[in-house]
């Protein structure tokens, strides 16, 4: 049976993501929560969630010596980043007066408050259901219609230098990259584990995805 490791670095509530994975796995996969380097290295696929502040997340990853394990997993096996688990894949974040991140993608994480025109009068956090425009085909979109709703809650958004990686985009005062993907990595700003049937479908697709 394949093993899915959900990386636990103390920065998020993992109950919902594990319940959702277990639900769609239908007994075909083992879902393990772990912060153990060997366990993560032995996974068939990896889920990298996260919430809270960028500096706290990077601090926790460095304390637990998980930064290189996360980078390696992303290069070797199907890898799903969720929320802060997407943001820290970039080079740096504006949050906490500038936070260096993992640097898998060139680009940075920016604040809605700072970058959206004040005349748009948006509320921050961006909280609730918004649509994702699928910019490129991807196995994880299978069965999910264009412009489907997903649940978001965040105050910062990613801006990769290479727009080609932004395979999903969402509008909130400005258009931002809500999904980035390349090779084995699929990373999304929204929470598939809280996005009802669309989210469950995406997680099911992830479980069956072979990666690059």
């Amino acid at each position: 049976m394949q093993k899915i490791v959900v990386i636990d670095y103390g920065m998020s509530n993992l109950h919902s993501v594990c319940s959702a994975l277990a639900q769609v796995a239908e007994g075909q996969a083992e879902v393990v929560i772990s912060q153990d380097r060997a366990e993560i290295a032995s996974a068939d696929r990896v889920v990298f969630p996260g919430q809270g502040a960028a500096a706290d997340c990077m601090h926790a990853l460095n304390e637990l010596k998980l930064a290189d394990v996360v980078r390696k997993a992303a290069s070797e096996k199907p890898f799903l980043g969720i929320c802060m688990g997407m943001q820290v894949l970039l080079q740096q974040s504006e949050e906490n007066d500038g936070t260096p991140c993992l640097g898998l993608y060139d680009g940075s994480v920016k604040s809605f408050r700072r970058h959206v025109n004040p005349e748009e009068k948006i509320k921050v956090p961006h909280m609730g259901w918004n649509t994702i425009q699928q910019k490129q085909e991807h196995p994880l979109w299978s069965g999910i219609p264009q412009d489907s709703y997903f649940y978001f809650v965040h105050s910062y958004f990613v801006q990769p230098v290479d727009e080609e990686y932004a395979i999903g985009r969402t509008d909130y005062g400005l258009e931002f990259a809500s999904v980035i993907a390349s090779d084995n990595v699929f990373a999304m700003q929204c929470h598939p584990e809280k996005s009802a049937s669309n989210g469950l479908r995406l997680l099911a697709n992830f479980i069956h995805w072979r990666g690059a």
């Binding site: 319940s19 639900q23 649940y151 809280k194 996005s195 009802a196």
Partner: peptide
């Protein structure tokens, strides 16, 4: 909460 969150996948 735990029981509901195991079966209902919305916030």
């Amino acid at each position: 909460v735990e029981k509901v969150a195991s079966e209902v996948f919305i916030p």
